[in-house]
Amino acid sequence: MRAAVFDKFGPPEVLHVVHVPDPQPGPGEVRVRVLAAGVQPFDVAVRRGHMPWAKIQFPQTIGQEYAGVIDAVGEGVHEFEPGDPVLGSTMLNGAAELLCVAAENVVRKPATLDFPTAAALVAASQTASGALLELAVGAGDVLLVHAAAGSVGTVATQLARLAGASVIGTASPRNHNRLRSLGAVPLDYGEDLVRAVRDLGLQPTAALDAAGGEAIAQSVGLGIPRDRIGTIVDDKAAADHGTRVVRAGRDPKRLAHVIDLAARGELLMPVQPFPVDDIVEAHRVVESRHSDGKVVLLLAP
């Protein structure tokens, strides 16, 4: 099979596609023929060597989220069979034509959801839904989402709106119309954010930071209770200001819920696709933080 690998830490150019042996499913596992694989900032950090706890063995495969079709099942697996369309999380092997994963972590893909969108939603769905649960966001809240146009922010904005909350979202001006279409009030990033929020006449009651930088300090400055300010990107700022780090971890049930919403057209995720052979450019785009949607690798025509 073909898989994206890197042989040393470094910039996107260390990535390349090679042939490696096909994996075989063990007991309790399924093998998935991957059709689409998401690219996350986490992948960028691993490739650069910024995740020292990650177990790296060169040549190292990469990728955390996938969508595809089961083509083999291991001993003891009865809930899936070859031909089933699925999606889910994995660890450092998603950008490959085949991967083996524990059947208990696999989510069925609804027929109405295409494979690239399914892959695009895997990480963002679990991160955003878990963060909103930890911050107890619900009806009547005003949620401030820093980096609302990113993949996590996009899902969090829509889930909060579906829960009955109002949303203020920060983004660059080119993404303001998209945030409006999701039901958020868009504002620019920057040092004037606190004043801009106050000018709206809306008092935020919770904040989710997916941007870093001054986001936590700005949220505190707006008078949001510190136990309702959460970050997924800036542990130091959270410690400095006495706010929260909200990383709820992977949960197939939460993922399945968001996937069901997307399949019914109640939640959207824009996708920017790249052939897997263009993985270098895909990583450049993710690293730039200026993508036109969630970056997804296509592993089949």
Results as ranks from 00 to 15, higher is better:
residue 131 A to T: 06
residue 132 L to I: 09
residue 133 L to P: 03
residue 134 E to K: 13
residue 135 L to R: 05
residue 136 A to D: 15
residue 136 A to F: 09
residue 137 V to Q: 03
residue 137 V to C: 03
residue 138 G to H: 07
residue 138 G to Q: 00
residue 140 G to L: 00
residue 140 G to A: 06
residue 141 D to L: 05
residue 142 V to Y: 08
residue 143 L to S: 10
residue 143 L to Y: 12
residue 144 L to M: 09
residue 144 L to S: 01
residue 147 A to T: 14
residue 147 A to M: 13
residue 148 A to I: 02
residue 149 A to G: 13
residue 149 A to F: 12
residue 149 A to I: 13
residue 149 A to H: 14
residue 151 S to T: 14
residue 151 S to K: 04
residue 151 S to Y: 09
residue 151 S to W: 02
residue 151 S to A: 15
residue 153 G to V: 05
residue 154 T to C: 11
residue 156 A to D: 09
residue 158 Q to R: 01
residue 158 Q to P: 06
residue 159 L to T: 01
residue 160 A to P: 11
residue 162 L to T: 00
residue 162 L to V: 01
residue 163 A to R: 09
residue 163 A to G: 04
residue 163 A to S: 08
residue 164 G to C: 05
residue 164 G to H: 02
residue 164 G to M: 00
residue 165 A to R: 00
residue 165 A to S: 07
residue 165 A to G: 07
residue 166 S to E: 15
residue 167 V to R: 05
residue 168 I to Q: 01
residue 168 I to C: 05
residue 168 I to N: 03
residue 169 G to A: 04
residue 169 G to L: 03
residue 170 T to I: 08
residue 170 T to L: 08
residue 174 R to S: 13
residue 175 N to S: 15
residue 175 N to C: 11
residue 178 R to T: 15
residue 178 R to Y: 14
residue 179 L to W: 11
residue 179 L to H: 13
residue 181 S to P: 04
residue 182 L to D: 05
residue 182 L to I: 05
residue 182 L to Q: 08
residue 185 V to W: 09
residue 186 P to R: 12
residue 188 D to W: 06
residue 188 D to G: 14
residue 188 D to M: 09
residue 189 Y to V: 15
residue 189 Y to D: 13
residue 190 G to R: 14
residue 193 L to H: 07
residue 193 L to C: 06
residue 193 L to A: 03
residue 194 V to R: 04
residue 194 V to Y: 04
residue 198 R to M: 10
residue 198 R to Q: 14
residue 198 R to W: 05
residue 199 D to Q: 15
residue 199 D to A: 15
residue 200 L to H: 06
residue 200 L to D: 05
residue 200 L to E: 10
residue 202 L to H: 12
residue 203 Q to D: 12
residue 204 P to A: 06
residue 205 T to H: 02
residue 206 A to I: 06
residue 207 A to R: 06
residue 208 L to I: 03
residue 209 D to F: 07
residue 212 G to Y: 11
residue 213 G to V: 09
residue 214 E to I: 00
residue 215 A to L: 08
residue 215 A to I: 08
residue 216 I to K: 02
residue 216 I to V: 15
residue 216 I to Q: 02
residue 218 Q to R: 12
residue 219 S to K: 05
residue 221 G to Q: 13
residue 221 G to L: 01
residue 222 L to S: 11
residue 223 G to P: 12
residue 223 G to S: 11
residue 223 G to K: 13
residue 223 G to L: 11
residue 224 I to S: 00
residue 225 P to I: 10
residue 226 R to F: 04
residue 227 D to M: 07
residue 227 D to T: 10
residue 228 R to G: 04
residue 229 I to L: 03
residue 230 G to I: 05
residue 230 G to D: 09
residue 232 I to W: 06
residue 232 I to F: 08
residue 233 V to Y: 11
residue 233 V to F: 12
residue 234 D to Q: 11
residue 235 D to L: 12
residue 236 K to A: 15
residue 237 A to Y: 00
residue 240 D to L: 08
residue 241 H to K: 01
residue 241 H to A: 14
residue 241 H to L: 12
residue 243 T to L: 01
residue 244 R to D: 03
residue 244 R to L: 05
residue 245 V to N: 00
residue 245 V to L: 01
residue 245 V to H: 03
residue 245 V to A: 04
residue 246 V to K: 00
residue 247 R to S: 13
residue 247 R to H: 14
residue 247 R to E: 14
residue 248 A to C: 01
residue 248 A to L: 07
residue 251 D to M: 02
residue 251 D to A: 11
residue 252 P to V: 06
residue 252 P to W: 11
residue 253 K to C: 12
residue 255 L to G: 08
